[in-house]
Amino acid sequence: MNEVVIKTDKLTKRFGDFTAVDNITFDVSQSEIFGFLGANGAGKTTAMRMLCGLSTPTSGDAIIAGFDVYNQTENIKKNIGYMSQKFSLYEDLTVIENIHLFGGIYGLDNYQLKNKTDELIEKLGLQGERNKLVASLPLGWKQKLAFSVAILHQPKIVFLDEPTGGVDPITRRQFWKLIYDAANQGITIFVTTHYMDEAEYCNRVSIMVDGKIEALDTPVKLKQMFSAKSMDDVFLRLARKAQRTSD
């Protein structure tokens, strides 16, 4: 059995009398691709912010990459990578500048930076774009570059918040190939998506409804459990029960 890299126990976050995340308990192992699904407003972003050490829980516990979410948040940040659809790279910096900036923030030294940069440029086939502004790259390339930058420092876990939104179907599949490669290298993938076919690519999937985790299992077992044909059906059945409507 692989080492547990995310462990939460009754993790809860309240804003005033609103419970955004309500007693969630789950484990994620090393190298696992873990799909974190839920309707808009179910509490996914709040939960993710706690797991990344950006928001202090109201109660409950969580250990991320061996560190505590209450008082070891700086260690957590050094051991994770993060990318989202909304913010990933600086558009007004070149490809190389972005790699150097993020590599530097993640603590790589100059020697490592040089090697990693060349390796990355070659892997993504961006030789001709090294010195171009990120703003000029097609969205799919940006997202592939952003993901590669987020795992440049070989983190234990990478958090991906809707990484493939709006990306064309071929690039979306190339992106998932990068995810598989990273998982095979031992990096744990924690990913949210609105594409239900992508839920099938995860080893396990959790579905959040109104701040609680309503289901957590492999896609095959979830479909059996709900006698559903697809993950789409499973999701609809659970999410339709939701009472709350606010984000």
């Binding site: 309707a39 939104g165 709006g166 609105h194 239900m196 609809l236």
Partner: peptide, 10 residues
């Protein structure tokens, strides 16, 4: 429907 969950999309 971009960025909207499956239920709201439906």
């Amino acid at each position: 429907t971009t960025g909207v969950d499956v239920v709201s999309r439906k």
